[in-house]
Design a protein around this nucleic acid. Structure first.
Length: 503
RNA sequence: GGCGGCAUAGCCAAGUGGUAAGGCAGAGGACUGCAAAUCCUUUAUCCCCCGGUUCGAAUCCGGGUGCCGCCUCCA
């Protein structure tokens, strides 16, 4: 079985064959850094994070490029509102991006180009288009001429005549054609500007991605990804300008993730119905969000709600309980020992193959997770009551866990220690929304109502142990209830009592 | 108006021709002093509706209905 991917170009699933065997060049449209990221950004980034992880797991040498668009109208507007330089705006939100996404456990791309650092390349590309008669200059602006590119619309399935008919009335009269778009924009006084053959100005949207992807991956590369909303016009325009300039095919596979919905409606800035990533991460552990996102296919719409997150947490807790047991086995000195094959162990032993089969089918993480849960049930059957007393079972359990761990790793799950996961406190809490105006460090400082210390928990567990030994069960139950009210859950195992935060 | 997508149990969600994965929630049982966790059993005679193709369809075709997205900044 080989990997197949759904290619927006052509709207069908097709076998994935990279340009150079064993190597993959992948460009993902990053964010325009003028505001905090919301869950929609999280979905896109997690989706492609998993795709990169899987490609690497499958043996490909991946060059992963993800840009920051750090100059555009919205950034300039924000800078003007605040009366600060645009670079200060972009720095703030790039920092925020890393803070948020590092917590989500995103891999850092191999290259993270920024538009402002590629101006010479952008200017050169625009000049190449002008020279080739594919673009024209009007009063310091440069427009791409759609008419000269017969393939226009091939990605989004649009036809040029329909687009013209539907074009807005307030068409810029300086354009030859309403569909033409800006490659270079002349700057007004006071705006950020770079020198160019057409006078001082800045890049239009779209061109930076063409310039940066081609610089880092070549004129033709394997995968170009982004959110569904980028198909038109962003990616359509990228194709037009890139292919018109080089005469070569641009990206070979176009992958687009579906939206995050709220109450079945697209979450977006313009609708105002979005949650920032840090709003969400104030309420749930980052990995819970990751699990939630991985539990649907990346192209399906996914509805965000408190209930879905609660369910995701329950599922992820179950996975971490398995890791907890594996850690206990290791701590008891067990070393992995072979698992006897048989019907009982089959879901476990076949998990890697079935995981690969699911992921090979256009990165079907939902099906892959299903197989992992099958494996988990089989693995739990092997769980020793007390690892140090049942070395054989402990060894098999550990071996089973180690079989699955690399698969979880592909999904970016179970990366923390179990104790760390269960006894982790959320860094900061949601207090009526953490706004963009609030500095990140302020937000982090807002502490949950002071909780019982870990020493105190241990003390009470010891008191309860003594009460139970004396058969004073009423007292023991009272201690357990008190702790539960404080958000601490006790679990009595054969080897003693452990605790975890409930949240 | 043009183009595209979706509709599977209480909820979430796989499944694109061979007779309904998985998760959450629920029920019963084992274990436990009682819980929690874990294990076992159980929960869709059926996949929006109506036709059709087929030995056989949730899966293919035609027609409906409902919802959503893109066509404008947007992951």
């Amino acid at each position: 079985m080989t990997l197949s991917v759904f290619n927006t170009m052509g709207n069908r699933k097709e076998p994935f064959v990279p340009l150079v065997p064993g190597k993959v060049g992948m460009y993902v449209c990053g964010v325009t850094v003028y505001d905090l990221c919301h869950i929609g950004h999280a979905r896109a980034n997690v989706a492609f994070d998993i795709i990169v992880r899987y490609l690497r797991y499958a043996g490909y040498d991946v060059t992963y490029v993800r840009n920051f668009t750090d100059i555009d109208d919205k950034i300039i507007r924000k800078a003007n509102q605040k009366g600060i330089p645009f670079a200060e705006v972009t720095k703030k939100y790039i920092d925020a991006f890393y803070e948020d996404f590092d917590r989500l456990g995103l891999l850092r791309p191999d290259v993270e180009p920024r538009a402002t650092e590629h101006i010479p390349g952008i200017v050169a590309l625009v000049a190449r288009l002008v020279r080739g008669g594919k673009a024209y200059e009007v009063g310091g602006d440069v427009y791409y001429s759609v008419k000269g590119f017969p393939g226009y619309g091939k990605l989004s399935g649009k036809n040029v005549e329909d687009l013209r008919a539907g074009a807005r009335v307030d068409v810029d009269e300086r354009k030859n054609d309403p569909l033409d778009f800006a490659l270079w924009k002349a700057s007004k006084p006071g705006e950020p500007a770079w020198e160019s053959p057409w006078g001082p100005g800045r890049p239009g949207w779209h061109i930076e991605c063409s310039a940066m992807s081609m610089k880092h991956l070549g004129e033709t590369f394997d995968i170009h990804g982004g959110g569904k909303d980028l198909v038109f016009p962003h990616h359509e325009n990228e194709i037009a300008q890139s292919e018109a300039a080089t005469g070569k095919p641009f990206a070979r596979y176009w992958l687009h993730n579906g939206f995050v919905n709220i109450n079945n409606e697209k979450m977006s800035k313009s609708l105002g119905n979005f949650f920032t990533l840090r709003d969400v991460l104030a309420q749930v552990k980052p990995e819970v969000l990751r699990f939630f996102l991985a539990s649907s296919h990346y192209r399906s719409p996914i509805d965000y709600s408190d209930q879905s997150l609660t369910e995701a947490k329950a599922g992820l807790d179950r996975l971490y309980r398995v890791k907890e047991k594996a850690e206990a086995c290791r701590a008891a000195g067990a070393s992995p020992s072979p698992i006897p094959p048989g019907e009982e162990a089959a879901p476990l032993l076949s998990a890697p193959a079935r995981f690969v089969e699911a992921m090979d089918d256009d990165f079907n993480t939902a099906a892959a997770l299903g197989h992992l849960f099958d494996a988990i049930r089989a693995l739990n059957r092997l769980a020793p009551g007390e690892p140090s007393a049942e070395r054989d079972r402990a060894g098999m359990f550990l071996a089973g866990y180690e079989l699955l761990d690399p698969l979880f790793s592909v999904l970016g799950l179970l990366r923390a220690g179990a104790k760390e996961y269960f006894q982790e406190r959320l860094d900061f809490i949601h207090v009526g929304g953490i706004t963009a105006e609030m500095s990140i460090s302020d937000a982090v400082k807002v502490e949950l109502n002071p909780r019982i210390t870990e020493d105190e928990i241990e003390r009470r567990i010891e008191a309860r142990r003594a009460a139970r030994a004396a058969r004073q069960y009423a007292e023991a139950d009272r201690i357990r209830k008190d702790l539960e009210a404080a958000g601490v859950l006790l679990e009595d195992g054969k080897a003693g009592t452990t605790w975890k935060y409930k949240e």
